[in-house]
Amino acid sequence: MPLDRVEASTARQRLDGFLRGVERRALRMAEFATANREEALDLVQDAMLAFVRNYAAKPEADWPPLFHRVLDSRLTDWHRRNQVRSRWLSSWWPAKNDEEAEDPIATAPDPGEVGPLARLMGEDAGQALDVALKQLPLRQRQAFLLRIWEGLDVADTATAMRCGEGSVKTHLWRALNALRQALEAHR
């Protein structure tokens, strides 16, 4: 077998392994954004195609933030389209505003508190988290999922979300506080 064909086969295997490893979490992220599995599947497929077309030749270490950059772009587009549609369909469906002023002291976690999910067990905890994540604004949710779940560092998360590292920290801070408050309500 020619050398370039061997290399192509190896590259395909690596790409396959990467996509296989990330696809389920990507689907769940898209589901949190769309609340619809079919639409989520379409978005993930689009993201895979665009990632392979544009970034497959990049170094493997760069793939996670680049894949999520593509997916995040798809989710943002979907969100924008949905907002426009919603604005036309219904004027009484206010969109959440990421930039709402919050009192950081009032929303700061209690250092003595072990955490809201500690009180929830099994499916209850999963459902509570699911609902709380769906209620988050898109940017806050993405910051939480990319940093906490996907394990990207701040710089890679900023790359994926196409924003500054400071914005990532702000979105994450707000997401953590909002999730904590939402999950506290399940007590």
Partner: peptide, 26 residues
């Protein structure tokens, strides 16, 4: 426990939700 330890549990729950997708979706 640190205040953010609940995020470990959140991560585990999210992992479980991703692993338990139905066959058609997979």
């Amino acid at each position: 426990k640190q205040p953010q330890d609940w995020t470990d549990r959140a991560r585990a729950l999210l992992d479980a939700s991703a692993q338990h997708l139905d066959g058609a979706t997979v």
